[in-house]
Structures are given as C-alpha cells and as structure tokens.
C-alpha cells in the first residue's frame, strides 16, 4: 500500500479511513493555525471577525471529515 496515497485502487473501508485521516490532518493543522490567530486577535482586542469565520468553516470541515472517518467503522 503506497504510504502517501493510501488505498490506491481499493475501495476498502480501511483505505477510505486512511485517506480521511490524511485529510483530517491537513484540515486540523489549518484549523489549529486559525485558532491561534483568532485567540491572539481577540486577546489584543483587534478585529477578529474574518479570522473567526475562517475558523468556524474549518471546524465544520474537520467535524464532517471526522464523522465520515467514524462511519467507516475501522
């Protein structure tokens, strides 16, 4: 199984779970960065609306991917 393209050519639930985990890692990283930025802006008292909106979108995306990962049953 290729490490960076898990489950290529297979439709198994394990392969799907691994692909979703990879996506979760990428989205999670960007969500964490957005969280740090939002917290810093809030603490400083700077406008943080846009940053918070980006964070909200990323959190929803992480939740959706996490749910899909859980539903694979692996």
């Amino acid at each position: 199984m290729p490490l960076f393209n898990p489950g290529t050519g297979t439709g198994g639930p394990r392969a799907k779970a691994q692909r979703l985990e990879l996506l979760l890692g990428i989205l999670g990283f960007f969500a964490f960065m957005a969280l740090v930025q939002t917290v810093v802006l809030e603490v400083r008292g700077d406008p943080a609306g846009f940053s918070a909106a980006v964070l909200a979108v990323l959190v929803v995306a992480v939740w959706l991917v996490w749910r899909a990962r859980r539903n694979t049953g692996v």
Binding site: R19, L22, G25, G28, F30, M33
Partner: peptide, 16 residues
C-alpha cells in the same frame, strides 16, 4: 493510531 493524521499535519505544515 493516527499515523495518517500526523502525515496529513506534516503535509499541511509544508503547504503553509
């Protein structure tokens, strides 16, 4: 567990 999650996070870091 979470091996691919870490790989994804590393990929995310390189995209930043």
């Amino acid at each position: 567990p979470g091996k691919f999650l870490i790989l994804g996070a590393i990929l995310g870091a390189s995209m930043f």
